[in-house]
Design a binder for these strands. Structure first.
Lengths: 340, 340
DNA sequence: CTGTTAGCGCTTTCAC
DNA sequence: GTGAAAGCGCTAACAG
């Protein structure tokens, strides 16, 4: 059996109270000598407080939950890394929850995490959440009085702390880059329309077009799903529209575009310039390294944890948005527009 | 405040015991009517047991810890996904721990997990562990009487359950594939020599060579580190050795080889055939899709959880090795040897 | 059939 | 300065 506080009491002759006081640094008026005896005994008996018991009485577990759709997705695994690293730095622990983008799992995980006594939740809403469903998740956390921070995906109207990227700016940067290179017909392979971040990228795209006094053409939009498949289909669709450049709303789908274009006999960037989004590690490895908008995902994870723990310590998370700045990483998949 | 069992007692007029019995399905001789009253009350009051309290008394938390080096590494993120999915299926939870391959973190996480009351640990030893250090980690888990399963990385002499891949066979398959294509001078970019799995792949390589009666040439080995950098340096080294094929001991380093060969003006597979290992998702996306030995990482994660939970339920994990079979995925990076 | 009681390991108030 | 006692929310003997 593990050593308990009682064992130390028995061993030293002091009461459980005194031991607890000393071990928690709350022993204001206990003579050094007593302290030393207790500390030494704790050490010798290799005492480690049972955190389950501590959690029960303190109603604090120093544990948070991370709800995401899928750790095996590169974006989320980088986020999770940042989250876990910061947790460790602050001596907290992390319970990982994958929802596979099912709203019902958001709900069940929130409840389970609450039952397990986590002190807070980092929440990245499931993709299949309608606005109403999303609000249900948030409502549940509020009802359970469990502090939370939303990451990456936001819900208009949610009054909470939100950590993400300035996607409008990201969309603008990608588009402006292509415009500067002389491209005028720029196709997009978007993300799911229900996602605010995809919509924001689109807004940035439109804004850049407007600045260059180019009319926005809805037919140059292929509505995708952030996966490689979308990129493949998007490439098929856009090639027929005679675009000279494509802005893929994330790298995974840019890979699809890239692969498909090649198969169609179009080369990147000679025939078509391509910009991705996320700047996944792999993008650098492609034969034609991908120009991409970088999201500092790891740092976002770190920041979200900081916000959450602050919120936990102060009672609740303040309502605010922390938007990171995107950075355009120019590589070889984009080049000047050439008249054909 | 959350509803407690006392609230239900007060609400229904029954004692706490009865409530507990009913809610836990242990109410053998309690009349249906009483049950219904209690169940309905629990439902109406939206009762959810406080698992921290349950954990304290039952000494079970239905939580396991996963100790790996880095979730942002594709291999581990896929493993983690399998682990978490199986946990969810069995109604368990997962605490994620990244060590960044530091042995000292293995040790501290093991202790923390024990303090938090996890029922078991899935352990993938830190890379910087010497044999002695590795044994220290295992010894600690044994001392703490916490069931564990080792995954991916094994320690000769550890008496425990181990889930991994038959890497010797994997190395053999990759090499044999190249031999069948007529290659005779096959270079290797290995993983860290301290890792059993890298050593096993090498053994498989030698075995295949022996079958084809080819002398093993130590100079055709570049000792790498499983990262892209190793691949880059390995390519430089091996090109000078006039090999016609390279077996990279993992995909990440195969990418390095691939990128470097291209830069050196060698094309894959025309000039040099290339085989990777792990079959990471991305390998399919490369301009020259990579032939690779597949590790069913996700399934390994699932199996490890099954073993661990079985072990927890039965008192301890049986000493056994569960080796998955590798599968060679032939793509376009390998072709027949051509006399030059 | 159901309730009383003790106790999991710890913190904390209050009293001496 | 230190200890007794209560209690966190729950389970599980043991009574009756």
């Amino acid at each position: 059996m593990r050593t308990t506080i009682k064992d130390i009491a028995r061993y030293t002759g002091f009461s459980v109270t005194t031991i607890s006081l000393v071990l928690n640094g709350k022993a204001k008026k206990i003579p050094k000598q007593t302290k030393d005896v207790i500390l030494e005994a704790a050490d010798r008996l290799n005492y480690h407080p049972n955190q389950v018991a501590v959690g029960l009485v303190k109603k604090r577990t120093n544990t948070i939950g991370l709800i995401i759709s899928d750790v095996s997705n590169v974006f989320f695994s980088n986020l999770a890394k940042g989250v876990e690293d910061e947790c460790r730095r602050q001596d907290w622990n992390l319970i990982l929850c994958n929802t596979n983008d099912k709203h019902s799992r958001d709900i069940s995980y929130i409840q389970v995490l609450a039952d397990k006594g986590v002190d807070g939740i980092l929440f990245c809403m499931a993709l299949d959440s309608s606005k109403k469903k999303g609000m249900e998740s948030i409502g549940l956390m509020e009802k359970l009085k469990i502090p939370f921070v939303m990451i990456d995906r936001f819900l208009e109207g949610a009054r909470c702390c939100f950590v993400s990227l300035n996607h409008e700016l990201g969309g603008y940067m990608a588009t402006e880059h292509l415009l500067k290179l002389g491209h005028r017909r720029i196709g997009c392979v978007t993300g799911p329309d229900v996602l605010e971040d995809s919509m924001a990228r689109l807004t940035g795209y439109k804004k850049a077009l407007a600045e260059y006094e180019i009319d926005f053409e809805p037919s140059l939009l292929y509505h995708g799903n952030y996966d490689r498949e979308s990129g493949i289909n998007g490439a098929d669709y856009l090639v027929d529209k005679d675009v000279s450049a494509i802005f893929a709303f994330n790298d995974m789908c840019a890979y699809g575009v890239y692969n498909r274009l090649k198969r169609l006999g179009k080369s990147v960037p000679e025939d078509i310039s391509l910009v991705g989004y996320d700047n996944i590690f792999f993008s650098e490895i492609l034969d034609v390294p991908l120009t991409s908008v970088e999201q500092p995902v790891y740092e976002m994870g770190v920041e979200a944890v900081k916000q959450l723990i602050d919120g936990i310590n102060s009672g609740n998370c303040a309502e605010k948005s922390i938007l990171f700045q995107p950075r355009l990483i120019v590589r070889e998949s984009t080049s000047e527009y050439k008249e054909r």
